[in-house]
Nucleic acid binder design. Structure first.
Length: 105
DNA sequence: CGAGTGACCGCAA
DNA sequence: ATTGCGGCCACTC
């Protein structure tokens, strides 16, 4: 953990720490970063912050893909499939089982 | 520099 | 059961 790092640093770090073939929710990531109610910030950082981050591994509380922004919703589904994650109707299959958690390498 | 927006979540009425 | 509102931080214009 990096207590001195800003919220963005923690979010980026956690996002990068997400293993291959695994997904996480904005709320969970925000909570892990220290602000469970700052889920919006996670989305903002993921989009404007660092394009190199695996933002496609971020999903909403329902395990669904992004809310339909700059035409990335379909791209996200494609990226997820590349990681071995199957999506149906823009919803990650077995999302509950694929939900990544710190310590579950 | 100042103000507004954003890919969300949780609770209340 | 459904709908509406508030709230946090960072980034952009």
């Amino acid at each position: 953990m990096k207590p001195d790092a800003n919220f963005r640093e923690r979010v980026e770090t956690l996002m990068t720490e997400v293993p291959y073939g695994r997904v996480i929710t904005y709320g969970d990531l925000a909570g892990l970063a220290g602000q469970a109610n700052a889920s919006r910030v996670v989305g903002g950082i993921a989009h404007f912050g660092n394009p190199d981050l695996p933002w496609h591994r971020l999903v909403n509380r329902f395990g669904g893909l992004a809310a339909g922004f700059h035409g990335g919703r379909e791209a996200q589904a494609q990226l997820l499939e590349q990681e071995g994650i199957t999506c149906t109707n823009h919803i990650v299959d077995n999302f509950e089982e694929r939900r990544w958690r710190p310590g579950q390498n």
